[in-house]
Amino acid sequence: MTGRLFLNAFVALTAAFLVLPILAIVPAAFSAQSFIRLPPDAWSLRWWGTFFNDVSWRVTLLASLKVAAFTTLISVVAGTAAALGIARSGPRARRLLTSLFLGPVVTPAIVLAVALYSMARATGLVGTTMALVIAHTMLALPFVVLNVGVSLDGLDRRLLLAAAGLGAGDFHIFRTVTLPLIAPGVVGGAVFAFVTSFDEVVLSIFLAGPTVKTLPVRIWEEIRLAYTPVVAVGATVMLVLALGAASANRLLSRK
């Protein structure tokens, strides 16, 4: 009995440890003061006004959404194709290709950042949307490959044989049988790709420029100048979008 009590308390503490920092930032965004203090002495929406009225914040939010959208699109198309290829290859090629595609996840971000920065400088891409999209795609692609790969493992190969036997060509089979059945994996991969891009900081700091800058980079810059609750507003906006994407995924995959 006491053992069970102890276990429950431990679980509750762990959960609090994970969730509290996230929850702490939300009240800070509704503060009336010019600095972050928890809990705020007075409440207001003034920093939300500041955030959405300031062109520089709006532009970075839009840039973040744009980069995340392109990243998601490219990762989903390329990652699904890669997963299909991996599923078709023999066991040895399969292991090799899987570790190759998962490489960027295990490589330290700072190593990738330095490498990408030097290449972006050489090609004059620093500070462009394209540089950010390329960098984010490197990080997002493995999640699509993984998610779609898991869905493909669960796909009954005989369904494809049955479709072929009924006269369908490869692309028709992909469109009418494979894709609908791996859709949960594709959607899951897309959500991961979007979130990965949306809150990526390290590569973005290196590759962003004065004109193109994502929201996390802007928050990081702001926090070094002034520790105002507008930073908390930016963070809350990110939190809402990430949670929104994750719940959309849950809803879609439950169907």
Binding site: L161, A162, A164, G165, L166, G167, A168, G169
Partner: peptide, 8 residues
Amino acid sequence: PRQRKMGM
């Protein structure tokens, strides 16, 4: 298979 007109 798809050109064979067989039902499986």
